[in-house]
Simulated assay, not measured.
Amino acid sequence: MSTGTRARRTGLTALATVAVTALAVPAGAHAATDAPAPARVQAPASAPARAATAAASGKVDHATWQRDCQGVMDQALPYIEERIAAGAPGEKRAIVFDVDNTTLETDFGFHWPQPANRPVLEVARYAQEHGVSLFFVTARPGIIAAPTAYNLEHDGYEVDGLYVRGLLDLFKNVADYKTAQRAGIEAKGYTIIANIGNSATDLSGGHAEKTFKLPDYDGQLS
């Protein structure tokens, strides 16, 4: 069993345990020569290069993942700052986030509550402090909606809306399901200025001005 698969299974098992508990309680040489060659300083690999290396090696470490997430959020934050500044008076701005390995460290957070993905949390906090509503669209089933909302709020996210899959949604294509939820948010009068996730199914289908994809290393992260 691969490290990624084992991590996902461990994370899902822990999450299922949390769900039952929550529902039960109210609430990354030179060849030798006669004279030594001068030392060579190698520039750090870019985020895409690290992602490719991690995917090829068959395992992803937390530090590499965090650096790669930070690289994406270093692009997202300036855009969000500019977009907020350029917004029309009275505009209802929103950002849509995925949950697993986007806002929360699902495949790395082996305790409850699961820790926030810090680079994403920093961007979310900036947005919410500047009047942007935060919506979370996840493929998690409805049975764990309450613990998911608690986890997000505990970590510092303001949850203006959490969308989880109901029974009928479990039979739908995930990308189609998520697209429909974003369309619903727009129907409430919001302009989705950014959509942030780690999978193509989080971002396809439109209904967002700009998308930012976090690494999933060819599907190694859920």
Rank of each mutant, 00 (worst) to 15 (best):
Val137Ile: 15
Gly90Ala: 04
Val123Trp: 07
Phe110Met: 15
Asp98Gly: 07
Val132Asp: 04
Val137Leu: 13
His130Phe: 02
Gln128Ser: 11
Asn117Glu: 14
Ala85Cys: 00
Glu129Val: 05
Ser133Met: 08
Phe136Met: 10
Tyr126Phe: 15
Val120Gly: 05
Phe136Asn: 05
Ala124Ile: 06
Lys92Asp: 08
Gln128His: 09
Ala116Phe: 13
Asp107His: 08
Gly131Asn: 10
Ser133Asp: 14
Ala86Arg: 10
Leu104Glu: 10
Gln114Trp: 06
Arg118Met: 11
Thr138Ser: 12
Lys92Leu: 13
Ala127Phe: 09
Pro113Trp: 07
Val96Ser: 01
Ile95Ser: 00
Ala124Asp: 06
Asp98Met: 07
Val96Leu: 04
Gly109Gln: 08
Ala94Gln: 00
Val120Phe: 06
Arg118Thr: 14
Phe135Ile: 01
Ala85Gly: 02
Asp98Asn: 12
Glu129Ser: 07
Arg125Val: 09
Ala127Glu: 09
His130Asn: 15
Glu91Val: 03
Phe135Ser: 05
Thr102Gly: 05
Val96Ile: 11
Val120Cys: 10
Glu105Leu: 11
Thr103Cys: 13
Ala139Asn: 11
Ala94Leu: 06
Ala86Val: 00
Glu105Cys: 04
Ser133Val: 07
Phe97Ala: 04
Ile84Asp: 01
Val99Ser: 07
Phe108Pro: 02
Arg118Phe: 05
Ala85Asn: 01
Thr106Val: 12
Leu104Val: 14
Phe110Cys: 10
Ala88Gly: 02
Pro113Tyr: 08
Leu121Ile: 13
Asp107Phe: 08
Gly131Trp: 02
Ile95Asn: 02
Trp112Phe: 12
Thr103Arg: 06
Phe110Ala: 14
Pro113Arg: 00
Thr103Ala: 12
Ile95Tyr: 01
Phe136Ala: 04
Gly90Phe: 01
Gly90Arg: 02
Val96Phe: 08
Tyr126His: 15
Phe110Gln: 13
Leu104Pro: 03
Thr103Leu: 06
Val99Cys: 11
Ala86Leu: 07
Tyr126Thr: 08
Asn101His: 09
Pro113Glu: 05
Asp100Leu: 14
Arg118Tyr: 08
Ala139Ser: 14
Thr138Pro: 10
Val137Trp: 03
His111Phe: 12
Ala124Gly: 11
His111Glu: 14
Asp100Ile: 10
Gly109Arg: 03
Ala85Val: 03
Asp107Cys: 14
Val120Ala: 09
Trp112Gln: 15
Asp98Phe: 05
Phe108Leu: 13
Ile84Trp: 03
Thr138Asn: 00
Phe110Ile: 13
